[in-house]
Design a protein around this nucleic acid. Structure first.
Length: 564
RNA sequence: AGGGGUGUAGCCAAGUGGUAAGGCAACGGGUUUUGGCCCCGUGAUGCGGAGGUUCGAAUCCUCCCACCCCUGCCA
């Protein structure tokens, strides 16, 4: 059944069910932990959805925690933008807004405890030396010469690090674990480093900052997180995550780290590094360019939060590296908007039609259905007169097979109006079609012929006298290749595959007059074309619409096929 | 002396010893005043490969192969 929306299960849900059943946990507490150093994209949406919906489903809670442990990359503007995006997606963290930086004092105390347990030491090696001492993938590391400093000396040095007595890079605090571990993360990882930059929240209070590995697990523990979901590249960090918690936390239940596959989408890129290039090098207009996979971009494009959540449900959660077809996302927004969007008639590439047997002074108001999927949305009146616009591509002088639309001598229906028949084609001196002349059949008002004759096509149209002028921005996929990064190993940059036609601006669009006072963000279906959204660049005089997604279109698919 | 992870249809993805769900895409057909929506139908003698255990294997065992991640004082 199409109507029954089933959410598939996934391995994380199964783990939680088991944990609850075995009473390892009594409730579910998750968290979404972004670093405030950039904008959220649809990959983050998967994580947000996962964390919040799991908490919701099991009656628990989900925290929003900013992982702000590195002041050189982070900024307050990102925390506001991230909060806005999470809210827009439809999730609420309630009281549970946290910052890793709120725990800096506690984290410092944890580090002191570790030193006292002889499980951490101050190391004077330079970054290059640390790297050298760490060994390689196949060779064990060798211990730092500073590894066996006394507790007293370590304590003294660590406090002096905090007091700002040492230069950046001159000293770090390291956990003392195992320099010969096959897991490089366990070879005495750095847990505190000196960074003499003000932090966006703690300002100048600190000049040493904990690293992710130290801060994240302990922040989870402090907040009582039960299930700490992260992406797969952290799998190798899990032993470390557990090591710190086992050394420093004795409350139960201890948070459990579970890794899942991050999202990849065809015809786009989702890495922060690549997205930033697109913005900085001017390939797009900004982080909220409607072609960007950022939540800001998708929002401006016209995607609904419901459609994005639905997408997350549909793609599921697994551990295998996957590349989801963007057609799946497009399906989700169509599915949503088909049910809700009001239908309108809009001619994107106008061709004038003169109805030669229709009285010049006559005007009629014709009734049109607002949404055939939801008759409760009622009807509206659309004006009709002697001169109208139809879509240029709806007329062909020499129609190929299977072209059902208007052609010389052929009769079609104007939606909600009349049958018209093409009687003449007017061209300029270069042979370009300027307008076409038709006759209408007054008997077919409303769109049905009393004699029962049929037409093969129904065209949308707009009265020339009443039309509103508008700009419509036709967006397409940002890249021409399903995986734009595929050839990076061959030295071909992903930007080589940018779609030159990802934005086509249509300047001479004609809209039905009911579109007069649209509001920013409103979405409509322009019949036979697609779903469109009012862009923020609109003015009172001139609305601007973004194409969210085109309607499925068997004809253009067929035409494309037979063309090659 | 490397370690960790993953392989089920074009793309996602259920499945946990009882005879391969579901969705997207694709392709047929029906319906239609949107070439939309909706409805119906079409896919793996097969689960990376080869052996083995078993009455029975995608599920258990052995070996092999492919791809991804890890040598930041990033997260």
């Amino acid at each position: 059944m199409k109507n029954t929306i089933e959410v598939p299960t996934n391995f994380i849900k199964n783990i939680i069910i088991e944990d609850l059943k075995e009473k390892r946990v009594s409730s579910v507490v998750t968290r979404f932990p972004p670093e405030p150093n950039g904008y959220l994209h649809i990959g983050h949406a998967k994580s947000i959805w996962l964390n919040f919906s799991l908490a919701q489903e099991f009656g628990g809670r989900c925290h929003l925690r900013f992982d702000d442990t590195n002041p050189v990359k982070e900024d307050e503007t990102y925390v506001e933008a991230i909060k806005e995006d999470v809210k827009w997606l439809g999730y609420c963290w309630g009281e549970h807004l946290y910052f890793a930086s709120d725990y800096f004092e506690k984290l410092f105390e944890f580090a002191v405890t570790l030193i006292k347990k002889k499980k951490a030491y101050v190391c004077d090696l330079s970054p290059e030396e640390i790297k050298k001492y760490r060994g390689t993938l196949t060779e064990p590391g060798i211990p730092s010469p500073y590894r066996d400093r006394s507790v007293e000396e370590n304590l003294d040095l660590f406090y002096r690090m905090r007091n700002g007595e040492f230069e950046e890079g001159s000293k770090v605090l390291r956990a003392k674990i195992d320099m010969s571990s096959p897991n490089l993360n366990m070879r005495d990882p750095v847990i505190y480093r000196i960074i003499k930059k003000p932090h966006h929240r703690t300002k100048d209070k600190w000049c040493i900052y904990p690293t992710y590995d130290f801060a994240h697990c302990l922040s989870d523990a402090i907040e009582g997180i039960t299930h700490s979901l992260c992406s797969q590249e952290f799998e190798d960090h899990r032993p470390l995550y557990e090591w710190f918690i086992n050394e420093l936390i004795d409350t139960e239940p201890k948070p459990k780290q579970i890794e899942f596959a991050r999202l990849n989408l065809t015809y786009t890129v989702l890495s922060k590094r690549k997205l930033i290039q697109l913005v900085q090098e001017g390939y797009v207009s900004g982080w909220d360019d409607p072609r960007m996979p950022t939540l800001a971009g998708l929002r401006r494009r016209g995607y609904t939060p419901e459609s994005i959540r639905r997408f997350c449900e549909l793609i599921g959660v697994g551990k295998s590296e996957s590349m989801v077809d963007i057609a799946m996302l497009e399906y989700c927004i169509r599915e949503d908007l088909n049910k809700r969007a009001l239908r309108k008639m809009a001619v994107l590439n106008p061709l004038k039609v003169v109805i030669v047997n229709y009285d010049e002074d006559k005007e009629e108001m014709l009734e049109a259905i607002n949404n055939p999927e939801d008759m409760s949305q009622g009807t509206r009146l659309v004006p009709f007169c002697r001169e109208i616009y139809i879509e240029r591509e709806d007329f062909m002088e020499e129609p190929p097979k299977k072209f059902f639309r208007l052609a010389p001598g052929r009769e079609v229906r104007l939606r909600y109006a009349y049958f018209i028949k093409c009687v003449d084609v007017i061209k300029d001196e270069n042979g370009n079609i300027v307008e076409i002349h038709c006759t209408y059949d007054p008997e077919t008002k409303g769109g049905n012929a009393p004699d029962g004759r049929k037409v093969k096509a129904t065209l949308h149209w707009v009265s020339a006298r009443h039309a509103i002028d508008a700009e419509v921005r036709m967006y397409d996929r940002l890249f021409v290749k399903p995986d734009p990064t595929e050839d990076e190993k061959k030295g071909i940059d992903f930007k080589e595959y940018i779609n030159p036609d990802s934005l086509v601006v249509l300047n001479n669009c004609k809209l039905e007059p009911s579109l007069k006072d649209v509001k920013l963000g409103e979405r409509f279906q322009f019949e036979r074309k697609g779903y469109f959204c009012v862009d923020k660049d609109s003015t009172n005089e001139r609305p601007i619409f973004n194409l969210i997604v085109p309607l499925r279109d068997k004809w253009s698919k067929h035409a494309k096929k037979t063309n090659k």
